[in-house]
Design a protein around this nucleic acid. Structure first.
Length: 391
RNA sequence: GCUGGAAUCGCCUAGCGGCAAUGGCAGGAGACUGUAAAUCUCCCGGGUUCUCCCUUCGUUGGUUCGAGUCCAACUUCCAGCA
């Protein structure tokens, strides 16, 4: 059995479970650190094990030229469960959202990048990319994405999808969604051919798009649930206030016995909304990127290290991460971060990334326990009440 | 002592007659959600905002409609020769 449901929280869509993969089990809900190129920037595999990472997520687009005979997990030394994204995110980040931020608020300009400026062009067969660094053209369609993911050998793959932007209207989203569904079926067909190529089973999730429209979200869930996917990716660019409803529409329609991965979100409030509405796993670049940019997660809100020169306060009182256990203070970390010395900076990136990742992993562990105990709603209330943003 | 050279907003740096004055660092404020992100944006002489005013480029004078920019003297620093 691939997914084992171990508990449910009545009155919500929240549940706990275990995903069984060839490289180990994943206890859910959990957060997956993102190692786009196969490793988490500046973080050692041992660090990931120490902080309780259940799995990590990499990206087929970035690894499109790679091929690992013994699979990603062996190749990079992680040896645990791995996910790969299909490259679908790059359809937007190099296309309609090129140069823009993936916003969850309305204050940002709701405008797509001009077509002539895009580095990704969507067609029926797939997506034509221009490499942002060296300008080399490439093409990825559902078949190519499956071939890449199967060559990389991660345990759980995403079907190739088009992530639409907040600026896309209903008509475009509907057209795109129909294409994403066709791509999902093509992904499924191609995946079948290669999923055992490395000698162990690789799994495939279909990805649900459909923007913030209920009819599209429900219809795509009903459509995709008919097929033999191993699980589902919940995709999209969301406004925070819409997230819960969108996930509910999808997950009310999806079969309970298959796992669901919410793509690309990790702020604590989003994780609570996600879990409450039926998501099992999460991934996001935010904890590591924000760490590199000086933001440290604490249970009373995030802090900007810039403001803590010479501070002897702990990063987050009571934190059980290796960085805090080693006694690093806010002032220590700030000094390393702001140092002109490259090695010190790199040390900072590691220490801060590990701290932020552990923060999220501990959060999902606590959420798991709270679902099992039936105290999830209370835990959520208390956590979020305490989690202000003092900066 | 002589001969060259140099003094610019915390530091380095541009500037060669129209300048509140270039670029970098440091500093400050934001942003970041399936990683074109060890990144990006904004501020950084003062007047709390300003297409407005004030005070600035070692000091003091001078030339000029106008001087950080040209001239003179002085002060300090650097280099070469003694």
């Amino acid at each position: 059995m691939f997914f084992e449901l171990t508990s449910r929280l009545p009155g919500t869509l929240a549940r706990t479970g275990i995903i069984h993969t060839s490289h180990g089990d994943i206890k859910t809900p959990t957060f997956l650190p993102v190692g786009t190129f196969g490793f988490v920037k500046f973080v050692e595999m041992d660090d990931l094990r120490k902080i309780g990472a259940e799995a990590m997520l990499s990206n087929a687009y970035h690894l499109r030229r790679e091929s690992y005979a013994r699979g990603l997990a062996e190749h990079n030394g992680w040896r645990g469960p791995t996910f790969t994204d299909s490259g679908g995110f790059q359809v937007m980040s190099l296309g309609s959202g090129l140069g823009k931020v993936v916003s969850m608020t309305r204050e940002k300009p709701l405008e797509n990048t001009a077509k002539k400026d895009r580095l990704a062009r969507v067609a029926e067969d797939g997506v034509y990319f221009t490499d942002p660094f060296d300008g080399t053209p490439s093409f990825i369609g559902p078949e190519e994405s499956m071939q890449i993911q199967c060559k990389i050998g991660s345990d759980i793959h995403m079907a190739f999808d088009e992530l639409t932007s907040l600026a896309d209207d209903y008509e475009y989203t509907k057209t795109s969604l129909a294409r994403t569904e066709r791509w999902a079926l093509r992904s499924l067909e191609e995946h079948k051919k290669h999923k055992m190529d490395l000698g162990y089973e690789q799994h495939l999730y279909a990805v649900l798009q459909g923007g913030h429209w209920e009819d599209l979200r429900r219809s795509t869930a009903r459509f995709l649930r008919q097929y033999d996917f191993d699980g589902f990716g919940l995709g999209g660019a969301f406004l925070k206030e819409d997230l819960g409803a969108i996930l509910r529409w999808c997950n009310e329609e999806l079969p309970e016995e298959k796992p669901r991965h919410l793509l690309g979100l990790s702020h604590p409030d989003d994780i609570f909304i996600g879990v409450e509405n039926g998501a099992d796993t999460f991934d996001c670049v935010a904890p590591t990127r924000e760490a590199r940019h000086g933001k440290i997660y604490t249970k009373s809100g995030n802090i900007n290290l810039r403001k803590f020169a010479d501070s002897t306060e702990p990063l987050d009182p009571g934190c059980d991460c290796p960085t805090c256990a080693a006694g690093f203070t806010r002032g220590n970390l700030r000094a390393l971060w702001r140092s002109g010395d490259l090695e010190k900076k790199q040390q900072y990136y590691r220490l801060a990334s590990v701290h932020n990742l552990r923060f999220l992993l501990r959060l999902t562990e606590d959420i798991r326990t709270s679902i099992e105990n039936g105290t999830f709603l209370e835990f959520k209330h208390n956590f979020l009440n305490n989690y202000q943003n003092p900066c």
